[in-house]
Amino acid sequence: MIQIEGLVKAFGHTYALRGIDLEVAEGEFLTIVGPNGAGKTTLLRILATLLKPTSGLVRMNGRVLSPGDTEIRRQMGFVSHQPLIYSDLTVEENLHFYGRIYDVHRLEERVDVLLDLVGLEGRRHSLAGTLSRGLQQRLSVARSIIHEPSIMLLDEPYTGLDQQATRMLRGLLGAVSPQSHAVVMTTHNLAHGLELCDKLVILSRGRIVYQAERGSLTLAELQEAYWLYAEGEGGLGAG
């Protein structure tokens, strides 16, 4: 589903990614954890076509990723810690807008389904700017799946959420993930990362320093591995 080969990204002389090789199979949920500056967001932004890699190759659904490929973007949904919604538009108007630029057919029906799914039916006519951070993030999830993407990219989706909002979002992502054929999530939070994933990698200073299957991993083992491979290496990288 997603194949990454020798991916390098440099910003001037600073390397954010130093040769990433990774594969996400169909139906797989991959979590990427790592300290600040490990290159998690850079990696996800390259997968989302928001950044151009310096070298290396990414294939998604058999297509080589290129920034000019508009079709590949139709297959992706992207959620970040910024909700990417317009605060002066209502919840419904935000979804209509994104539905139009994603060429969603039967948009009215799709908006109804999504509002129901994310529990915002009662806030349909509220301005997005008046929603709490947690509700904005739920709207962001609805925005990201309006075109029924086969690949979900989640970049630190829990950042800035309180405990209750985090719990709600975790439930929502758990419900939404099976509808996608592959999910890649970055997070700081090891417990959140481990909970939903099938496979987990630790990224540190632009390199994959640890990989494990979910089934064989406990939180305690992950914390130990994280300390050993990520924090132990100093953790501070570029990007």
Partner: peptide
Amino acid sequence: RLDGLLLAP
């Protein structure tokens, strides 16, 4: 928000 637009097909 520009990312939201850049992500669209």
